[in-house]
Nucleic acid binder design. Structure first.
Lengths: 196, 196
DNA sequence: TAATTTGCCTAACACACGTTCGTTTCAACT
DNA sequence: AGTTGAAACGAACGTGTGTTAGGCAAATTA
């Protein structure tokens, strides 16, 4: 599986995927049934199999598209021309913005992929590891360079990404804080914890 | 429901609860079956009902005991005699230590309680809100007093508690970092993010 | 116009789930 | 020795699950 291989979907498939994303993120993958999904789409349950061959495939299609978003928008920032601190700031910010922009899909990126069938689960697990490693490596560089405090970088990465992750459970678009403000707050808080 | 009402269990009930805690925290509540649990205990599935009246009751017994741990060990620190910063430091530290000391139960405290039956779910949801509010109030006080940066306290509380929460997925007791070191790192990182 | 594809339908299957029932075993107490 | 109570058993029930089979009607293509 390669993220560049992802192909555009027919309108109907996209509609189903979007509805499934909302359903899975609200109730969780296991608690969501094909009957639930069909009801939301106002079709009969078996009709879903004209589009996707299994419940797992639906989760997979969501998960892999979700991975692509973070992959394409966040990771490239790591090798942009800027200071280490500048790059990390931008990455954290973009990571947070990605979550806020794709709040429903984010639940799949962080939690529901755990229920993928073994082969797909393994692929996803590796992707997440790689994703986190990019952050951790940047932190390590920053420590060696002397601009960050001497923190255990892998450990700190897990902590800060987990801290950010749960906005998707917490954030309601109608609240007083907008995406910009939240992004700023997160970045400032975390960078204060890192900087010397 | 009142946390002071919790009564000690018979040896066998405790054994079952302990096994269930491990099972639920590894596979998740929904993915765990009564047959799985029975197998681990080397009894037949229906035998479980000699001890607990439902799967939900088992989750509830775990959840409520878990709440008691955090309630008894972390919350009292909020009203100890110390500076605001000192109290918050101790609370964060104790919170982290509680997770590390009860790693399997922690999964229930943070995630699996979501699957409780509505009435119990509501109780637990309120408990968590109260628990987080104690942290948030302390941060608010610290801001008013002038010792903390002006962060949105409720938002920041969610972020830092979520950041800490995921140690339970990350931490393996055989690793190089022990509980003390991890606790220190968390406290330092977070306090750096808060302090002026 | 004929052929094919697309998207949905109804009916139903096989299985796994939480749970109930009635019974049995066996240690502890009277 | 007889009674009681706890803890287990085997069999089975009802329900909900993902999924398959086969068909039908409308849109698309040849």
């Amino acid at each position: 599986m390669d993220l560049t291989e992802i192909q555009p979907l027919s309108d109907r498939k996209q509609e189903i995927l979007q509805t499934a994303t909302r359903l899975f993120s609200e109730k969780g993958f296991l608690a969501s049934t094909m009957r639930d999904l069909a009801k939301l789409l106002k079709i009969q349950p078996p009709s879903l199999y004209s589009h996707y061959e299994s419940k797992d495939e639906i989760l997979w299609e969501i998960a892999v598209r979700c991975a692509k978003i973070f992959n394409d928008r966040v990771l490239p920032i790591a090798s942009v021309e800027d200071t280490i601190e500048g790059r990390l700031r931008s990455m954290i910010r973009e990571h947070a913005v990605c979550i806020l922009d794709n709040q429903e899909a984010a639940a799949i990126f962080f939690h529901e992929w755990e229920h993928l069938v073994p082969a797909r689960h393994e692929w996803y697990s590796n992707f997440i590891s790689m994703y986190e490693r990019v952050f951790a490596d940047l932190i390590t560089e920053g420590i060696e360079e002397g601009s960050f405090r001497k923190v255990p970088s892998k450990f700190t990465t897990s902590m800060l990404l987990s801290g950010i992750a749960w906005i998707h459970r917490w954030y309601r678009p109608d609240g007083s804080m907008n995406v910009e403000v939240i992004g700023d707050n997160i970045v400032e808080f975390i960078m204060a914890g890192l900087k010397k």
